[in-house]
């Protein structure tokens, strides 16, 4: 049996009435939740790069791991969020848009590749450019699948009782 497609977008899905309405009902709290999440996510990413600095011309492991971890976490989060049925209206904006969106970054990933190229490391640059999307997509696909399987098992166990 094919798995149902994920119904909801982490940032905003204007096909969903709840997402369309969320900016009208409480604009300040919504943008505040996104901003707070974004600050926390960006701060956490900055902390990781301080603890795990990339040597000149080296593969940017810290940002690659931040992005892969963020993609794994969004897979878990979005599946659980859909399972919740009627979650708090600021939960997805705070965690999905803010924390995980702010934690992961596309700009630093692309800029690191450019820096590697300028440092005369074209192979490392190419490896970064190609490996991060593959790692990120594998992470989100596996995490969403495993989370759905866990949710289904729990549902079945509850149904059997």
């Amino acid at each position: 049996m094919p798995e149902p497609p994920p119904a909801e977008d982490p940032d905003v899905d204007l096909h969903l009435p709840a997402h369309r309405a969320e900016l009208r009902s409480g604009r300040a709290s919504l943008l505040g939740a996104v901003a707070l999440g974004g600050a926390l996510g960006a701060g956490a990413r900055y902390g990781v790069t301080l603890l795990w600095p990339t040597p000149h011309g080296g593969f940017p492991w810290a940002v690659a791991c931040v992005n892969t971890a963020g993609c794994a976490l969004i897979g878990v989060f979005m599946v659980l969020h859909e399972e919740l049925g009627s979650p708090h209206r600021l939960l997805r904006p705070f965690v999905g848009v803010g924390v995980l969106g702010g934690f992961t970054t596309f700009s630093t990933y692309a800029a690191d590749t450019r820096t590697l190229l300028a440092a005369g490391r074209p192979l490392v640059a190419l490896a970064d450019l190609a490996a991060v999307p593959l790692l990120a997509l594998a992470a989100v696909a596996v995490s969403a699948r495993v989370t759905r399987a866990c949710v289904a098992r729990i549902r079945n166990a509850e149904g059997a009782r």
Binding site: A42, G96, L100, T104, F106, Y109, V140
Partner: peptide, 25 residues
């Protein structure tokens, strides 16, 4: 750079949206 552009861009939403497209056929 680290703050504004870092948080303006996202890998998590990009990857999840790609997964959504793939799973919807």
């Amino acid at each position: 750079g680290t703050g504004l552009c870092g948080a303006l861009t996202t890998y998590s939403t990009f990857s999840y949206e790609t997964l959504r497209l793939a799973e919807s056929g």
